[in-house]
Write a protein that binds this DNA or RNA. Structure first.
Lengths: 238, 238
DNA sequence: TGTCAACTGTCAGTGGCTGACATTAGCCTC
DNA sequence: GAGGCTAATGTCAGCCACTGACAGTTGACA
């Protein structure tokens, strides 16, 4: 039925982190490790193929063949072709949410969001590299920004994250998302700036982590001036 | 190749408005009128079926059969299953962009955006009803908000609109989008508020046009306070 | 070592979407 | 107003993402 349209329901395999399971019910048995290896291999091969030949031009069969599993197995690990693209992003976003919860309560909402993004960028490299080379992640990011079908998925994920973050912010500030528009509006403004920064970065030449950091920082710092400032009596723009 | 993923390239039939062609090369001949009728019938039947049985649960074959054309013909009018959903939205957004260009140059950017949205809502009813009943449009809106696959498409379209609007704003203010982040950031904050308002409306009970107007108005008015205001010394929230 | 359960492969089928080619039906000219 | 031109449509065959069902394989664990 749903065939082409992205799914919300995903396979019950809900491992979001990339680290070793170590904690939960399934300890690090052979089976568990094998599964993890298959999953990582699928991610790596998929992203390698996508970034090399393009997303639309790569079929699931090719990915499965590269890892030497059946097409059916691919779909047991990922609910859709899109999902494998964002597997690493999910780790990154989880880090960001954690970081946000750790911010001191007296910080202003937007400042807390800003700090959380910046801090999470600091140590995310290691987490990413446990699954794929950081450079492949950066190339993936750029591929997403230049593939309309993936941008759509990107936004859907963003908005789910937005909702989650809005609730976090509301709790921090002691207000209710149901009656007070400000948490959602603030988060919308914030994630809008992040999205735009990602887009501008994706269009530029410099593919480095430093570059996206800088651009993100600049765009975030412009939210206040852009919304509340007086544009003609310029605040200085760059 | 691209099969399931949404297409950017669309059929060369690029009639975005719903009115009679009257102006261009093809005058209102029988052929032209027939095409317009087929297109409108496809939109109407599709939205009727989607809102009644759900988007995923409705097949293109069913839509085509309802209008008594072949499946292939459907795809000659719309590049994808998604596109037919947003056919009416495209008219609405075109109205908004027009309205924005008509705002006086001395208005602050966010105020111009706000006024343009509100004004375009005023007279859009007639335009919509030339194609489908207004009530069907409202139900469609709600269906979009509750269908993840469509939300993704919704955002892709939003962001294309965002880019266009950001350029308009930049021109109004006499700045350059390439070097000054503020137009894009302001528009991102603005459309974030719009999106959130749409979402909140979609989750509520009141399906009326007045309801979405009110919610939109309230959320837009909160952008300033949410971003620049002091949340603890409350500004009053509702 | 044998049983159980998880993981995987195979197969058949659905639905979105496309290219190629044949057919129909407005339109325009003589 | 018959005939040619061409846009619009139908038919058909096929690709690819994705799914359910069933059978085979392989770790886990008594």
């Amino acid at each position: 039925m749903t065939s082409s349209t992205p799914q919300v329901t995903r396979p019950e395999t809900a491992w979001s982190g990339g680290g070793e399971p170590s904690g939960g019910t399934g300890t690090g048995g052979l089976r568990e490790r094998k599964k993890q290896r298959t999953r990582d291999a699928l991610i790596r091969s998929a992203l390698e193929l996508f970034t090399a030949h393009g997303y639309d031009e790569t079929t699931i069969d090719e990915i499965a063949e590269a890892v030497d599993v059946s097409q059916r197995t691919f779909f047991r690990y990922f609910a859709s072709k899109e999902e494998v693209v964002f597997a690493v992003h999910e780790m990154v976003e989880a880090r960001f949410a954690e970081e946000l919860e750790r911010r001191p309560a007296d910080e202003a909402p937007l400042e807390a969001l800003r700090s959380a993004v910046m801090t999470s960028w600091d140590d995310i490299g290691g987490v990413i590299q446990s699954v794929i080379p950081l450079e492949l992640h950066m190339r993936t990011y750029q591929m997403i920004e230049s593939t309309p079908a993936l941008m759509a998925a990107h936004w859907r994920r963003y908005s789910e994250l937005e909702e989650q973050i809005a609730r976090l912010v509301a709790r921090r500030e002691g207000v209710d998302v149901a009656t007070d528009p400000r948490p959602r509006v603030a988060v919308a403004a914030f994630s809008g700036a992040i999205r735009v920064a990602g887009k501008v970065w994706g269009e530029g030449e410099d593919v480095s982590v430093e570059s996206i950091r800088e651009i993100t920082e600049e765009y975030l710092s412009q939210i206040g001036p852009a919304v509340c400032g007086d544009w003609r009596g310029r605040t200085e723009s760059r």
